[in-house]
Simulated assay, not measured.
Amino acid sequence: MKVDTNLYVSIGLKLIVAMIGLLIMTRLLGKKEISQLTAFDFVSSLMLSELVGNTIYDDNIHLSHLLFALIIWTLLALGLEKFIALFPRLSRYAAGTPDLIIRDGIVDFKAMKRNNLDFAQLGMLLRENNIFSLREVAYALFETNGSISVLRQKDPEEISGNAVDQQSSVSLPAYIIENGSINEDTLKRLSRDREWVDQLLQLSGISHHERVLFAEWSDSSGLYYQLKEVKKD
């Protein structure tokens, strides 16, 4: 039985190039590709696995073809990331947005069903945040990567009885402006409008929201922001 040495060498070279190419691509796209998996990242991972898997064992696809495909995919991914950074609203459509599962100590069961969550899964996610009772939670956000972020109550030991009758001791901050763009989804959740944002900015001496890099609103702490042009004395 004759062994095709060239085939083994070709497969080995493709594997080496694929590994190096994927490592470089991951570094270029940032550590978030490793630390979390959004819907876009999941699709990207599937595409890359198909791309590398189909080219390694195909004799008709040469090493240059694999390199070309990896370079084009990296450029497309980088270009999309830069484009989305310029238009924050697109990011919310491409990667999704966090969903408020617990608001002011009240569990939103409709939001749980919308995200296919049951109480056993919610309890597990809370325990991963070292929380073993719902009374400890003021706000809980179900993130786009499947994790949960929690803002705790200040005095959970003093909370008992009907959750609806309780008054939360903390307020969840929210981004109302991102890179000069007003977050309409956040305003809707806060039951506010653009006129309210403009009034807030005018009180802070800001003429237009496009000058603002980010603005965060909290019912308990008010407005916190940073302008695009940072001036230091």
Rank of each mutant, 00 (worst) to 15 (best):
K14A: 07
R92A: 11
L86E: 06
S147C: 05
P88C: 04
Y224R: 12
V197F: 00
F142E: 01
Y93V: 15
W73I: 11
P156I: 03
I71C: 10
Y93I: 15
I61V: 14
A174F: 03
E143P: 04
R114Y: 06
K2P: 14
A69E: 04
I182D: 02
I106R: 13
P156N: 09
I61C: 06
E136V: 03
D4L: 12
L23T: 14
E143I: 07
L187P: 02
Q36N: 10
S45F: 11
R27M: 11
I71W: 07
H62N: 14
G161F: 07
T186F: 06
I56M: 08
R103W: 08
A174E: 09
K31C: 03
S218L: 10
R189D: 05
Q166M: 01
N115F: 10
L223A: 08
H209W: 15
I148N: 01
W196S: 03
S91E: 13
D99E: 14
G205W: 08
G21N: 08
G146L: 08
S10Q: 12
G53C: 14
F109R: 11
K113F: 07
A18W: 01
F109L: 12
Y225G: 06
E136G: 02
V43F: 11
V52Q: 01
G96R: 04
Y175C: 08
A18P: 03
W217N: 00
D185N: 15
L134M: 14
L46P: 04
E81W: 02
L66S: 02
N6W: 12
N179Y: 06
K231T: 13
S147I: 00
L75K: 02
D41T: 08
F87T: 10
P156G: 05
P88T: 07
I71H: 03
Y57T: 13
L22M: 14
I61S: 10
I34T: 10
L15K: 03
R135I: 03
S10I: 04
D99T: 15
R114T: 07
L223V: 07
N183P: 00
M19N: 10
Y57I: 07
L203I: 03
P98W: 11
P156W: 03
V43N: 09
Y93S: 13
L51Y: 05
Q121G: 04
K31R: 15
S204I: 02
K228G: 12
Q199S: 09
S91T: 06
D99K: 12
A85L: 11
A39H: 08
M1C: 08
S207G: 06
A163W: 02
I101K: 01
N60K: 14
I11C: 08
A77W: 01
L200D: 01
G123F: 01
